[in-house]
């Protein structure tokens, strides 16, 4: 089972019926010159990359921007149509007065599989006690959290909120809560490793590529910024394959990771096993 743990379905045509919604999404996400694509096209690309399932991430920006990049209900709509291809996460704006009710509905009624939060875009620090009831709700339902971490390309999304140092308090106080700090928290790769070495409930993903080619970037991160065996020795169960589609094409990123000299066992973890553990499947 190959899982892409980081996909934003903003151009899935199932949820692209309204031009004004699409414009809002594109502006808030900071992506341009792309158009909606069909399920057949999405599946063709997943098949070509030999990717079985993708985790779909919404983002609730109610108090910051007056809307959502993708809503929980839109995620539910996609999942209901294609349950074998996609795994749906929820999102909630922590500043909403009804944040806990939104989250309760997402887990209890919409049956979504985890929570997406973006401290940079939603403008909160992950160690702000405002978040504690939300973390508690995730723990209650045994749902993982996919946090944005590190550089965010989205407009009005400051990196200061997403420095790994701000996640440590939550990792300490919620040791049963599985949390992914996405994008290897790039450029804070060392800080990301610092958290992972101490907190086994902290995961990351590979969705980073802000310079150079897929091969060059993956080579530099995993073979130069780390020693060639660093991931193999220390983080074999905490790094998930994630693409950040539609910013980066999944099959190209996957191929670059396949080219790295990791053992087959570690590659199997990266490309699926770790995502299953993060999702809590097989517990």
């Amino acid at each position: 089972m190959i899982i892409d743990a980081h996909v934003h379905p903003i151009y899935f045509d199932t949820i692209c019926g309204d031009d004004s919604v699409l414009k809002f999404r594109s502006e808030q996400f900071g992506i341009y010159k792309q158009s909606p694509y069909s399920y057949e096209e999405i599946i063709a690309e997943m098949n070509f990359g030999k990717i079985d399932r993708s985790i779909l991430l919404p983002l609730d920006l109610t108090t910051q921007s007056g809307g959502s990049i993708v809503t929980n209900e839109e995620i539910k709509k996609i999942i209901d149509r294609h349950p074998d291809s996609f795994i749906g996460f929820a999102s909630v704006d922590p500043y909403r007065k009804d944040a806990l009710e939104v989250l309760e509905n997402a887990f209890a009624n919409l049956k979504l599989s985890g929570l997406k939060l973006n401290p940079s875009k939603q403008q909160f620090y992950p160690d702000d006690k405002l978040l504690w009831p939300i973390y508690e709700k995730c723990r209650e339902y045994d749902k993982p959290i996919m946090f944005h971490a590190g550089l965010s390309w989205e407009p009005n999304a400051l990196a200061k909120y997403a420095n790994p140092i701000h996640y440590e308090q939550a990792a300490v106080e919620f040791p049963e809560l599985r949390m992914c700090l996405a994008h290897f928290a790039w450029p804070w790769v060392r800080e990301m490793m610092m958290l992972m070495i101490k907190y086994p409930n902290v995961y990351t993903d590979t969705s980073m590529l802000y310079m150079d080619s897929f091969n060059d970037f993956m080579e530099r991160i995993f073979m130069k910024e780390m020693d060639p065996l660093t991931l193999e020795r220390n983080f074999a169960k905490q790094v998930m394959f994630g693409s950040n589609t539609p910013r980066f094409r999944a099959f190209k990123l996957k191929k670059a990771i396949e080219n790295l000299p990791f053992s087959e066992k570690v590659k199997a973890n990266i490309f699926g096993g770790n995502a299953l553990a993060f999702l809590g499947e097989g517990k």
Partner: peptide
């Protein structure tokens, strides 16, 4: 595919890397 190309970088006008 695996040659060195200058176009292999993040494109701010797209908000994406095409490579």
């Amino acid at each position: 595919d695996d040659d060195k190309y200058i176009h292999a970088h993040f494109l701010p006008s797209y908000g994406a890397t095409s490579n």
